[in-house]
Write a protein that binds this DNA or RNA. Structure first.
Lengths: 228, 228
DNA sequence: CTTTGTTCTTTGATGACTCAAAATACAGTA
DNA sequence: TACTGTATTTTGAGTCATCAAAGAACAAAG
């Protein structure tokens, strides 16, 4: 059995790879990854940051993951999941997201707190319990944040086009919110208070490039954001 | 925060103390605790056994627990919980038993498997989640095995006389099963198949001291056991 | 080419938990 | 009192995940 730590690293690498694949809506022309790192690979510095450890720790752990066959690692070029690593990552993500949904739907925890709870639980629920949760929840496809829940076989749901970030939606268009890509409890409380939940329909009214904000209308009320 | 390991040791000590307090229905005249160990204290050998570690490990850990103020430990005389240690133990037990009940009642897991599941989960559920579980289950007083669930404040429920072991119930008497004091999945499956569940009413028909078995009737059918 | 600045790797240590095996204490027996 | 056998403690060592700080590598700028 992989340790909780190993699972966390693999998950972090997966998420970093995923985020790199669909480039984030950064307004700055692209922070110039200064030539290092191979394409598709995650630089160890970034991983260390995500895991809240010093860089040396990340190096050490990644070597261990490599030994275990979960990642492919080349010194100073970054790390990338092997098929086995990806499979594990998706399993962890499945556990995490099902648990989040359970916490919200069954235990009525707040949207803003489930992430951290699930963070701990995802490493100890057995397959058996997980399948019961899945059943109890009616085999859902997305978690409370709108993120897709991988299947038992490690596939992401058909992904209905998976949407665009608000930042590239043209002015005046009316869209439906698919995901809220932000884990900060602060922001999530604000979002819920404003009615900014997955599934909501909203209209983009205007934007102010100078302040890099955008305004949108939902339930009549206007709202101002930057990214996400 | 105490580590999962610390919680497990404290719990094991609590259960051992408890078991020692209400002497087990052993048929052998009492295995002669060869004069060692102080009264009410748990011998480290026994603790090591319960924790599945070698004796040396138990000694080391108990010293650490002592440093932390959770136990009172005297070399070669055994270990005993301090009030602080007992409080922790009861909290862990509360988590464990609520989770067991949740697994059985909400997720419909089998009676026989919930113990091990809960063993892992008890160390990671937050107070928040726990209180939601408590609410969801209707503030229960006993777990699926009939064991009492400590309150938030660390008290055991009023304990309605807490019953007698079957081994001291006189022949012919009709009683109601309160607890099934056995964690072995094998036995639990057997017990359920036989209808031997907490709350069941049964009659003691006869016993065979030679084979140290006893026979009882429930739903017409006879049954033969030894201890518990 | 050489310098610079950042990113990454190495090295040496630490804390929590564990084991194996040797050393010790002590109750009970002789 | 001396002896014996078991329960317990010590000692030495290992694993996992971590940090601090020193050293190396390398892209970009000069």
């Amino acid at each position: 059995m992989p340790s909780a730590t190993v699972e966390d690293y693999v998950k972090a690498i997966y998420l970093a790879q995923e985020a790199a694949a669909s480039p984030p809506p950064t307004s700055t022309p692209t922070p110039r990854r200064r030539g290092r790192a191979a394409p598709g690979a995650v630089p160890l510095g970034q991983l260390a940051l995500a895991m809240n450890v010093v860089p040396g720790t990340a190096t050490a752990m990644v070597k261990a993951l490599s030994e275990a066959g979960l990642v492919k690692y080349q010194s100073r070029r970054g790390v990338r999941l092997t098929p086995g690593g990806e499979k594990l990552a998706l399993h962890v993500l499945r556990r995490h997201r099902l648990i989040e949904l359970f916490l919200v739907r069954v235990l009525h925890l707040d949207w803003s707190e489930v992430h951290d709870e699930a963070e701990a639980l995802e490493h100890v629920v057995s397959e058996k319990v997980l399948s019961r949760l899945d059943h109890l929840l009616g085999y859902p496809q997305t978690d409370p944040h709108g993120d897709p829940i991988p299947s038992t076989t490690g596939k992401l749901p058909p992904a209905p086009a998976r949407g665009r970030p608000l930042s590239i939606v043209p002015d005046g268009e009316t869209v439906q919110l698919l995901r809220v890509d932000n884990r900060d409890p602060e922001f999530l409380r604000f979002a819920r208070a404003a009615g900014l939940l997955p599934g909501t329909t909203l209209t983009l009214t205007s934007r102010t490039p100078a302040a890099s904000t955008l305004t949108l209308k939902l339930n009549k009320k206007p709202l101002t954001l930057s990214e996400s």
